[in-house]
Simulated scan of single mutants.
Amino acid sequence: MDNAQLFALASAAVLPGWLALATAPLWRTGAVRTARIVAAVLAGLYVSLLAAGLAGEAPPQGASFTSLEGVRLLMTSEAALLAGWVHYLAFDLWVGSWEAEDARLPHVLLLPCLALTFLAGPTGLLLYLLLRMLRRA
């Protein structure tokens, strides 16, 4: 399977996890479990992409995690970019599953947090944490 097909597969595979979380009030434990299984499968795909990348050609000269330019160079490879995308998908879904499991908010307030976590990861997490803090106060 080529990188474009893996991208499409991973992008579609994450949707059942997010849909499960959106319906969490109906079956919270099952929704969280479903989302975490999907996140674990994506994590496995990430590990395999990372292993394939490490076994492949060397990163470009100057590529590193120590500078913005170094990270940009790391992402010049289509395979590295795909691995980065799968990384985002897995972690954002895992964070969304934690929000749903931890939710001490009415579900109507959790939904925007989940949507933002899906679309802009840390933004949704921040909204969730702020709402959670406000509810406790």
Rank of each mutant, 00 (worst) to 15 (best):
Q5I: 13
Q5G: 11
Q5M: 12
Q5W: 07
Q5H: 11
Q5P: 00
L6V: 12
L6E: 09
L6F: 04
L6M: 14
F7V: 03
F7C: 00
F7K: 08
F7Q: 11
A8H: 12
A8Y: 03
L9T: 05
L9E: 07
A10I: 02
A10F: 01
A10E: 03
A10K: 03
A10Y: 04
A10N: 07
A10T: 07
A10M: 00
A10C: 14
S11M: 05
S11G: 11
S11R: 14
S11Y: 02
A12E: 14
A12F: 01
A12C: 01
A12H: 05
A12D: 14
A13I: 00
A13Y: 11
A13W: 14
V14W: 06
V14T: 10
V14C: 04
V14R: 08
P16H: 07
P16E: 14
P16C: 07
G17Q: 07
G17K: 02
G17D: 10
G17C: 07
W18E: 01
W18V: 02
W18A: 01
W18G: 04
L19E: 00
L19F: 09
L19M: 08
L19K: 00
L19G: 08
A20V: 07
A20T: 12
A20I: 09
A20C: 12
A20H: 11
A20Q: 11
L21Q: 08
L21E: 09
L21R: 04
L21G: 11
A22C: 12
A22N: 02
A22P: 02
A22G: 12
A22L: 15
A22K: 05
T23L: 15
T23G: 14
T23C: 14
T23A: 15
A24F: 05
A24K: 03
P25R: 00
P25V: 07
P25H: 08
P25K: 06
P25N: 06
L26M: 12
L26D: 01
L26W: 15
W27S: 13
W27F: 12
W27Y: 10
W27K: 05
W27A: 15
R28V: 00
R28K: 13
R28Y: 06
R28I: 00
T29E: 13
T29R: 14
G30P: 01
G30S: 10
G30C: 06
A31C: 13
A31N: 08
A31S: 15
A31K: 08
V32M: 06
V32T: 02
V32I: 10
V32N: 06
V32G: 11
V32F: 05
R33D: 00
R33K: 05
R33E: 00
R33G: 10
R33H: 04
R33T: 13
T34P: 05
T34I: 06
T34M: 14
T34S: 14
A35Y: 07
A35P: 06
R36P: 01
R36W: 11
R36E: 15
R36Q: 15
R36K: 13
R36V: 09
R36T: 12
I37E: 00
I37S: 11
I37V: 15
I37R: 13
V38E: 09
V38I: 14
V38D: 12
V38K: 04
A39L: 12
A39V: 10
A39D: 10
A39I: 10
A39Y: 09
A39H: 10
A39R: 11
A40F: 12
A40V: 03
A40W: 09
A40E: 00
A40H: 02
V41E: 02
V41H: 03
V41P: 05
V41I: 15
